[in-house]
Write a protein that binds this DNA or RNA. Structure first.
Lengths: 247, 247
DNA sequence: ACTGCCATACTTCCATACAAGTTTGCAATA
DNA sequence: TATTGCAAACTTGTATGGAAGTATGGCAGT
């Protein structure tokens, strides 16, 4: 497993800012830095033994992704997980991946099907408690779908939005429906192979809607990590989806 | 009309970086700064009479949006309009707005319909050569759709992606199909009012596919502004859509 | 005329210093 | 004890200086 020790020195030969951004992003998404934690440019600069400037630039990037909240002249804190942001990110992913999968089914490529099935086999081999590895494989699977229809550039935008969803993912360490997710991956590939556009799309949408089922439980278990709308959870009002169940 | 003179001094009471970012972004999107133009931190800093630091931060933001290409230790140039980026941005918008409009038709709100129709009336009153005003109204129209389904946050994501599309828009100053766009807006609202989910979605998709018809002409008229794939335009290969015409 | 080398100028990246505003805590006062 | 005022210690925003690398143009040599 990759070392994630925050104190491991950076590689001075490589550009500092991207390294810092990645490290801090990981620490936030994995909840090592918890929502509400204060974080200051000078502090981080000291820890990694660099100047404030690259730290600042990393902060700005993370603030753009909604992971930090910079209040000028006041402080910078790790932002809580905005409920609405999670829903928005999920909505975007569903919309985008629905079309990607539909395209994929339309332009089916047999070699690709094989690659995808092999990748799913890797997912099955992951131990039930190794969320880390599974997350990487899951991410890879979805990126492969985008790549396959020539929309690799599209996926990089999705990644920028995914941050809030990933934080939720790392909070649901237990009762993670790994087997179900793998089964859904298989069903998506099945539908693509069958060139069934509608079924492929519907399977992808259901797959991406699954987190909505688990979100309330994760929030209930970690209420202080979330930034909820007034009056607590009322998903039926604020988060209509196209599925019907959540309208 | 808003003053866009690049030399107008910034407001020193407000944060410099966002002001700079906005100004530069406008100048690039409106092609005052043309693809390939060199641009340097010190130069811009002198023009606006600020230090290099906020300029640098603005550069980074614009590079993230694909408007600038920063080559460390070499130079920074206004990036050409990447053909693939335009297609990707359009694809994302179609996927997202298709779902937004579908949701809208599902949760129809009579008051909203009236607001939208009134907004379309404003579009009709714009003079044929006033692309500036029409662009603002068109943008507002689409944002209203997102707002109406509680997906305002989603729209800010779209805005980040839209930059490359907007550059194309400002290149197609003439033969701009304003009347057709307005007609399509009307058809979208009609379908929403009729609660016809499928037709609303299809109308939105067609609306957002329209630029594909004009893109080749714009490119042919401004070839040096674009960054084309090897061997020139082959949209039928590289840009499958769900519509069928471009598959 | 043409080629290869080298000094110079220019670029971004990082470090450091300063400015402006906010928070914090203590002390003075009622 | 409670409250008010102020000063010091923070915060981020901006300015400036130096370092490392690259483009550029002139000059020497052929």
């Amino acid at each position: 497993m990759l070392q994630m020790d925050p104190m491991r020195p950076l590689d001075p030969a490589l550009p500092i800012t991207p390294q810092l951004t990645q490290r801090l992003r990981d620490r936030i998404i994995r909840n090592h830095l918890k929502p509400g934690d204060r974080i200051s440019e000078t502090e981080i600069a000291k820890v990694y033994d660099v100047s404030r400037q690259p730290v600042r630039e990393a902060f700005i990037k993370l603030a753009d992704q909604g992971l930090l909240l910079i209040r000028p002249q006041r402080r910078t804190v790790v932002s809580r997980i905005a409920y609405q942001d999670v829903l928005d990110a999920r909505f975007l992913r569903e919309a985008i991946e629905a079309d990607i999968v539909r395209l994929l089914a339309k332009t089916r490529d047999d070699a690709l099907i094989g690659t995808l099935r092999a990748q799913i086999e890797l997912q099955k081999r992951v131990h039930a408690d190794d969320l880390e590895t599974f997350t990487q494989l899951d991410e890879q699977f979805h990126r492969m779908l985008a790549d396959a229809v020539g929309k690799a550039g599209t996926w990089s935008f999705v990644e920028g939005v995914k941050a809030q969803m990933d934080r939720v993912r790392f909070l649901s360490l237990f009762d993670y429906p790994m087997a179900l997710l793998i089964e859904q991956h298989t069903q998506i590939v099945d539908a693509v192979e069958a060139r069934d556009l509608d079924r492929a799309e519907e399977n992808a949408r259901q797959h991406l809607r699954l987190m909505l089922d688990y979100l309330p439980g994760v929030i209930a278990a970690n209420p202080s990590f979330f930034d909820l709308p007034e009056g607590g959870l009322a998903p039926s009002v604020n988060t209509p989806t196209l599925g019907g169940e959540y309208t």
